[in-house]
């Protein structure tokens, strides 16, 4: 029976400990949210990617031989139709509405472009042969 005060004391400590734990967790949560608020806007990262890709494009395109400028246009045509990803996401949402329909139309036209662009590029390139 003389152990009872010890148990009570320990239980009290446990309660206060858990209270402080809750408090700490709360602080952590608040800190975390402040971190998210302070986090860099994703557009900065995207802008970085965009500008670096512009530089890559600049150096790669200057290397293209002028004789292949027409195939260059048709292949860039095909790959810029990667915009189809946006249309596919629009078309894919479960609750069907106008957004889906527009998505479907865009998927159709973009895929005309993708397939057509790559095939016509291939057709042209196969003509450039050394005799």
């Amino acid at each position: 029976m003389n152990q009872l005060p010890v148990i009570i004391k320990q239980a009290q400590r446990l309660t206060s400990d858990s209270d402080s734990l809750v408090q700490n967790l709360k602080d952590l949560l608040i800190n975390n949210t402040t971190v998210t608020v302070n986090e860099v806007n994703p557009i900065i990262g995207e802008l970085t990617i965009f500008l670096l890709a512009c530089f890559v494009g600049y150096y790669v395109i200057w290397k293209v031989t002028p004789a292949l400028h027409t195939p260059l246009m048709s292949i860039t045509n095909a790959i810029s139709s990667i915009i189809i990803i946006g249309s596919m996401i629009a078309a894919s949402s479960i609750n069907f509405n106008l957004s889906n329909i527009l998505g479907y139309i865009a998927v159709f036209f973009a895929s005309v472009n993708i397939f057509g662009g790559f095939v016509v590029t291939q057709r042209m390139l196969s003509m450039f042969k050394k005799k």
């Binding site: 994703p42 995207e46 890709a53 890559v56 494009g57 790959i79 810029s80 990667i82």
Partner: peptide
């Protein structure tokens, strides 16, 4: 739509 592939490809084609 926050898609890096579209951004990169767009930049390549745009600069081309």
């Amino acid at each position: 739509i926050h898609n890096n592939l579209l951004i990169i490809t767009g930049a390549l084609v745009g600069s081309s």
